[in-house]
Amino acid sequence: MLGKTAGGLFWMYRYLERCESVARLIEAGFRIALARPDIVEDEWTSILAAAGSRAAYDERHGRIRESIVVDFLLRDRDNPSSVLGAVSIARSNARLVRTELTREVWESVNESWITLKQALDAPVHNRDLPETLGLIRRQAALVRGALYSTQLRNDGYQFSQLGISLERASNTARIVDMKYYALLRSGSSMVQTVSNVQWETILRTVSAHRSYRWLYGGDMTPETIARFLILDQRMPRAILFCIDGVAECLENLAKMYGRRLPSNELADRLQDDLRRVTITDIYDAGLKGFTVDVVNRLAVLSQQIEEDYRYYQ
């Protein structure tokens, strides 16, 4: 497979995943705004940061206003992390690697792009927001469905899956990073100001509020939530679950190609570190420092993959 093609698949799925993550972040912000109008500005600020769009927003708009933030995250074409920006990049990459996509995958990406371009043609009114966000999530699910049910399990599939897992891992890590103050140990002074709404929101941003309830009932403590988001190996958007996925894809590639590469080592080490650590260790060393470290290591790993498999040179 061409290096360029591997890179195209990887980024196509990363950006599709990003569309969905951003939609979920907006949804969470919107809910908080309804429940706690008093903290809404802080909320949007941290959502912008979790979406990796804080600097771009500040430069463009400065002051935080809900309608502007939502519009920026949905429709700003120059922002690669807006829904419209990300779906356009995903579709460009799909065109680039079209020979590696099944007809079903290609058509679902192309259709998503056409549909979302239309849906986001004009600013979305608050009253239509839930429906639009639902549409974005459905489009992303459609492409993944086509991937899982039609794509050959060859190296191309591994690069696709790598993109999905890496993007999810960094997304969840960024969310924990932005919300660390809401996840500080029970009993610490800041926690008092945080309500259940915050915790609910965090779980919603990774579509896991229901799964959490299945596992822990109504028992919400910062430690269990943090453990669930970081170390659970059953929750598809938990950091460790995603890193397991990344390491597995890289392992599969090593088997297919008959050689292990530096990215295998990086992924394995990250996976080992996370498997060994307990949530208490993480709190003892500092939650904030831990997530920042994970975000950085994921970025380094992504670059190493790019190099190992010759995406660009």
Binding site: M1, L2, G3, K4, A6, R95, R98, T99, D155, L253, Y257, Y309, R310, Q313
Partner: peptide, 29 residues
Amino acid sequence: SFLADQMGAELVEGHDLRVDNGRIAMRTT
């Protein structure tokens, strides 16, 4: 892309290719 796809051929751009060992070679993974 359609023809490459239908023929089972690689679709390359100039920067995917270079001279290598007396042949033209494409950069693969």
